[in-house]
Design a protein around this nucleic acid. Structure first.
Length: 133
RNA sequence: AAUGCAAGGGACCUUAUCGCUUCGAGUACAAUUCGAAGAGGAAAGUCCGGGCAGCAUAGGGCAGCGUACUUCCUAACGGGAAGGACUGAUAAAUUUAAGUUUUUCAGUACAGACAGUGCAACAGAAAGAUACCGCUCCGCUUGCGGAGUAAGGGUGAAAUGGUGGAGUAAGAGCCCACCGCAAUACCGGGUGACCGGUUUGGCAUGGUAAACCUUACGCGUUGAAAGACCAAAUAGGUACUUCUGGCCUCGUUUUUGUUUUACAGAAACUGGUCAAUGGGCGGCUCGUCCAUGACUCUUAUGAGCAGAAGUAUGGGUAGGUUGAUGGAGCACAACAGCAAUGUUGUGCCUAGAUAAAUGAUAAGGCACUUUAUAGUGGACAGAACCCGGCUUAUGAACUUGCAUUCUAU
């Protein structure tokens, strides 16, 4: 699998983002970020695969340079580790950076890896439950 | 030499790997492959000015807002250049002194106070017309009154030219000399602000316009989330065509189809019902009673109204395309100009994203720190339609200027 990160894999539709941050979505905290995710109805053929969104709040980082830098680190880390979610479909993910200081790339990558593994497990469980029923 | 302040240029370079955005090439498209390009001096603040676009708009005036020494530059500006005046500092010259002249540097919202209205705390006698103390004269009751007086005292941010003389009761530009000041006078220089000289004037025309105000000039308004185009699903709109005319059917009649006495459909009659209309009564968002009604009009074809179905179509939402990056463009040279800047020639194409691309990792060079190993790439800060400015932010080192301290001569 190529380590690409094209527009297809990014979350940019306004309505989808609204839905993602509505109350229904599941989420968990893992320093230094918060992860929000949601499964979409399967019949929607528009968005196959996984779509991701990264945000950094302006409250903690007033300069746009810092916000851009963190988002770029996020993107790089996700790009290198997205194979963990390779066979998942119809999944929308949002990352919110909650720390108030800029972390190292290596640390961020490790944590992002953990979050992806955890999400992958939850997805597998959900699929198993559905098949049991 | 050190420290501090201000100004200035400058804002590490090259290559590889994995990625992102745009453009170009190749195959029928996509995916993929190859090649090229990809943040700043302030991209920031959004403070001015313009382009561009929509809307508005006869012409003029008032109001409101802005600007305010002169000339020039510019698409335009509240920006810039050159110059003038004033203020402050500095050094020198001159004068008895006050002051004046010149050198260098810095600063100035720098039009108008004989158009009008207003304002000036405290102090002070008095702040726009004034006598508190003092000085002088006169009167008498001998410590008071009247008159004159801005030389002296004191107050204040500000008190009505300065020095000397003459003069006087005491004084005073009342008069004189020198200095200063004013002038819508005259002469000369300058495009002009203004400058120099002459003459005149005793100089009583106080200050404040970052108080109202007056004068001159300028300003329509909104803002790329502008504007233009394409356009799914769903629900409305419009047009046409067809069908139906409140609902129910125990019963009767007629008629059509299938397979016959049965079944299904249609029409009419009767009956029921009331959700439609009108009226009466009551306990009045309702109930009850009565009447009308089988949608209305027309002799009829048909027309109107309401509903259903079908077809076509307009606007328009999600979404997409465009606006949107070849321009008041950049580099170099020549010429014009003191300069800002302009003209001409040659060469170049240099981000264009859209929930928003420029990142990560490594190697080498270079710079700095450190004895070295090693470390760091340092500040301010991320394009969002595009330009011209202004303002603010900016580490270390370097260059220039100024100030202070120390050392040496």
């Amino acid at each position: 699998m190529h380590k690409t990160f094209k527009k297809k894999e990014r979350l940019f539709k306004r309505n989808l983002i609204k839905e993602l941050f509505a109350k229904k979505s599941s989420y968990f905290y893992l320093y230094p970020f918060k992860m929000v995710y949601q499964f979409l109805p399967a019949q929607d053929s528009d968005h196959q695969g996984v779509q991701v969104l990264f945000t950094v709040p302006k409250r903690n980082f007033k300069r746009a340079v810092d916000r851009n830098h963190i988002k770029r680190l996020f993107r790089e880390a996700y790009r290198n580790n997205k194979h963990l979610l390779s066979n998942k479909n119809n999944l929308v993910i949002g990352y919110i950076y909650t720390s108030s200081k800029i972390e190292e790339y290596i640390f961020l990558e490790k944590k992002l890896k953990q979050s992806l593994e955890r999400l992958s497990n939850e997805v597998n469980q959900a699929i198993e439950n559905e098949s049991k029923i």
